[in-house]
Write a protein that binds this DNA or RNA. Structure first.
Lengths: 103, 103
DNA sequence: CTATAATATGAGCATATGCTCATATTATAA
DNA sequence: TTATAATATGAGCATATGCTCATATTATAG
């Protein structure tokens, strides 16, 4: 495939996706949700972070449609909504596990 | 695979990789180099950006070993050095092309 | 050796990011 | 209805990020 300049909208879109995956807290949240649907407090407890921090990040991830939520009583359960992006993350986690330490 | 908390070093490493891919200028540089080895000025001209900006970003990318360079006379030619990360990017570019506009 | 071309680098600035604290909102249980 | 649990939200702050300008560095051509 020959080189073609990337259009602005496309680049912004890609940038946005990677930016979402570039923060340690969001990486941890997504990785956790990949294995188990969780309420906000469950996530905060598991990751030992403040409820507010988690809530803000979930809002960020939800607005990008990377996660979704459902309500049960007065709790919100969050889960993965974008499996393509999730695949990127898990793929990179696996790769990193094999790579780390090697030079 | 069951859930396992991600170790700090691993998360930092992954975060760093995605951070590198999260900036529009770096995305454009990498995509260009993926198709063609280029000098600093060639990149600056192609992307219509300042030489200084490109040089700074190349230093950033080189330090992460995503690109490498060779010298020819008094020019430096840069090229891709990490094809796994490059694969992540191209994969996402392709996916975005099909996705954009759709909701 | 000197002028010039190509690249690198440092400081400064504006904006973005992520967290915390305090508080608001919403729904349930009593 | 009221107290409480769960979540959401806004303001403020410290740090990170990316660009530009000016200048330094390095190598080549003459």
């Amino acid at each position: 495939m020959a080189y073609l300049p990337l259009e602005n909208e496309l680049v912004e879109n890609i940038s946005q996706t990677f930016k979402a995956l570039s923060d340690p807290t969001r990486i941890r949240i997504l990785h956790l949700l990949f294995h188990k649907e969780c309420s906000v407090n469950e996530i905060a407890n598991e990751l030992e972070m403040q409820q507010s921090t988690i809530s803000h990040q979930l809002k960020y991830l939800k607005q990008l449609r990377l996660v979704k939520n459902r309500r049960d009583k007065n709790m919100y359960f969050y889960s993965i909504d974008d499996y393509h992006v999730m695949n990127l993350l898990e793929q990179t986690i696996d790769h990193s596990k094999h790579t780390i330490g090697g030079l």
